[in-house]
Amino acid sequence: PEAADLRALAKHLYEAYLKYFPLTKAKARAILSGKTGDNVPFVIHDMKSLMEGEQFINCRQMPIQEHQQQTPASSATNGGALLGSEFSFVGMTSVTDHGTTNAVELRFFHSCQSRSAEAVREVTEFAKSIPGFVDLDLNDQVTLLKYGVIEVLIIMMAPLMNKDGTLISYGQIFMTREFLKSLRKPFCHLLEPKFEFSVKFNTLELDDSDMALFLAVIILSGDRPGLLNVKPIEQLQETVLHSLELQLKVSHPDSLQLFAKLLQKMTDLRQIVTDHVHLIQLLKKTEVDMLLHPLLQEIMKDLY
């Protein structure tokens, strides 16, 4: 009976994962391997292709016809729609140098933030679906999200990445790793550590149902700074850990110590998040006209 409950929990979390996250690993890997005949992603590999593709960044639906050069309807994409007009972020450029690479880089970075903020919202909805999460002290729910969300976002980037680049805009655009490395300092340092992590993480070959459980384990970390009531969080995590362990035995019977290897990734994650936050703080100082999305600001303030 206990195993049945653990399997039911895995199924429940997988359903919530499918409900709240727009691009599954299965679909991303299909796009990356070129199996889906119809939606071949638009490739951004240099400034020119970035400018051409910019209008599509963060769009949910790319115009179906060929990606030939159209007159961009508006430079704003829907990425900033998150949280209503709270912070319409995309398309914010310094008027003076609209066309220069400096402005394009900043606009791209703002689009990344806009998508990240939307992803935070998706993770929040997923967290609320974890049985018992909404019954925790509200302050602890905030703390678990504050410290867990960037780790979750990095894990969710892995399926979109390979050694050569990453999918963005719901899998409609493929941006090359070399292009990202060619951006000026410090933008060029932003994604490289995530590529290194993702290439290794992907060798574990988790599927979406494994990912759903792993994300819940990350969110339910009882050692986050400032938690008021650790006990119930640890109990919830223990149940999800049992479910994850069983799930990995069932779906990866001959993958030795996969459970242990997966848990070890959580220590790598913390270092990547710490470095990421410090880089963003540096960016805020050096980039005069760089704005930080208020939700991301809230999360990163006094984090590490």
């Binding site: 359903e15 949280l83 302050n139 905030v142 939700l295 809230e298």
Partner: peptide, 21 residues
């Protein structure tokens, strides 16, 4: 914790139907 206004609102936002049982 007024410092996390948006996170608070996202957590309390019940604009969503409960996930399938």
């Amino acid at each position: 914790t007024e410092r996390h206004k948006i996170l608070h609102r996202l957590l309390q936002d019940s604009n969503d139907s409960p996930t399938p049982a």
